[in-house]
Amino acid sequence: MKILLYICLIFAYSQVGLSHYRYPFYGLSDDAGTTPRIDQIFIGRCSDYQASHTMEHEVDCHELWMTFSSVFANLDPCKVQTAGYDKFIEKSSVPIPQDGSVFWSGTYDFTHSYVKTVGNLYTLEDVLPGYLVNSLTWCGQEKSPGINYETCSDPQGCNKNNTYDFWAKMSTWFAKSASGSVQVILNAGRDPAFASDSFFAKFELPNLPHDKVNKIEIIVVHGIDGKDNPKERCGSGSIKELQSLIEQYNFAWTCADNPGPIYHHLCTSTPDTIRCRSIHGVSRIVLLAALASGGVLIFILAGFIIALLCERGRATRYLKMAQNVKA
């Protein structure tokens, strides 16, 4: 009876789900003007990047700022020619290591934290062109000083369109620079997890080079915002739509729900969540119960159950991954 009680207790603990894991993203206000001292921030980031990365050629940071700012400075927002950003992207472009490109949708903070922890992976915001302007706001005006630091909101919405065009160009460049296996990290807590009007759908997936990219790894993260939509999983919901879309572009794909590295990062960042505590809690309960009973057989059984529980999640994830592989 004691053994049965211990097993039931273990089972109950193992079924507890993941609690809140939240990475709120705070976007800039629509009424915000150009980021103060944007030129200094831009040039400073440029210098820092070159100091911490091996560059194929040195970049003149001041010249790069002039190339970037000349697109919008001293101009009415509705007269900006966003094609001018192509020159900035060309001058600031850097090679992306093979198997290193990571795309994201609805997982901004989580993905950047994960990439930083794992290493040798890069989002658009981690490489020079994106790093220089990530989280910054900019817009111009015809009157002095040529840059509007008060507001980038205009009646026609030209500044918003200009910014959208800029990031569309950046996303296109980042996709074209990818090679080997690439990852796209999605948030299962959103509905839908994959949006057909997302930057990945509109600019990144269509521009992945077939001669360089051999596989797209879909990673569905559950538990970022404390919600877990059962429909948003590999093979169902919007994830199924993404899988079909990838097939239309003739790419091989795999799909995994909270694969090992992602799950480990969730628990590293939030070790107090229920699921992350469950294995450790079960281990302590079983061992204490076994010791209290004084039975060698129970102690051996306890060790076996603990090992089984530790492998349970990993085996399930690998099985799902294998079932969702599409060659």
Results as ranks from 00 to 15, higher is better:
102 V>C: 01
200 F>C: 02
138 W>A: 08
281 G>D: 10
113 S>M: 14
181 S>P: 02
260 G>P: 00
244 S>A: 15
21 Y>N: 11
84 G>Y: 00
136 L>V: 09
167 W>G: 05
247 E>N: 11
274 I>H: 10
142 E>K: 11
276 C>P: 06
82 T>S: 10
106 G>E: 08
305 I>G: 07
230 P>H: 07
23 Y>T: 08
117 T>R: 13
43 I>G: 02
304 F>Q: 14
156 Q>L: 15
240 K>F: 09
180 G>L: 02
169 K>M: 03
242 L>M: 15
88 F>H: 06
159 N>V: 04
187 N>Q: 12
267 C>V: 05
167 W>D: 04
156 Q>E: 15
274 I>D: 03
186 L>H: 06
148 N>Y: 03
63 E>H: 08
199 F>W: 05
272 D>P: 06
156 Q>H: 15
193 A>S: 13
190 R>K: 09
246 I>L: 08
146 G>Y: 07
100 G>W: 00
222 H>W: 05
254 T>K: 05
151 T>P: 06
323 Q>H: 13
113 S>V: 14
127 V>H: 03
301 L>M: 07
129 P>Q: 02
246 I>S: 04
284 R>L: 11
83 A>S: 09
193 A>H: 02
18 L>R: 00
34 T>F: 00
42 F>W: 03
265 H>F: 15
296 V>H: 14
25 F>E: 12
299 F>C: 08
205 L>S: 03
117 T>H: 13
126 D>G: 06
212 K>M: 09
49 Y>I: 06
72 F>D: 00
99 D>A: 06
323 Q>R: 04
155 P>E: 11
141 Q>E: 14
204 E>A: 09
86 D>R: 11
148 N>H: 05
145 P>M: 00
155 P>V: 12
53 H>Y: 01
80 V>K: 01
41 I>W: 08
302 A>H: 00
121 L>R: 04
79 K>I: 06
29 S>H: 14
272 D>Y: 09
128 L>M: 12
287 L>H: 11
236 S>W: 06
30 D>P: 04
241 E>S: 14
308 L>W: 06
75 L>A: 03
222 H>N: 01
166 F>H: 13
204 E>Q: 13
120 N>Y: 12
82 T>E: 11
35 T>C: 07
151 T>F: 14
231 K>H: 05
44 G>L: 10
305 I>N: 09
4 L>I: 11
148 N>G: 12
10 I>H: 07
119 G>I: 04
9 L>M: 15
243 Q>I: 02
262 I>R: 02
85 Y>D: 07
23 Y>E: 11
44 G>T: 04
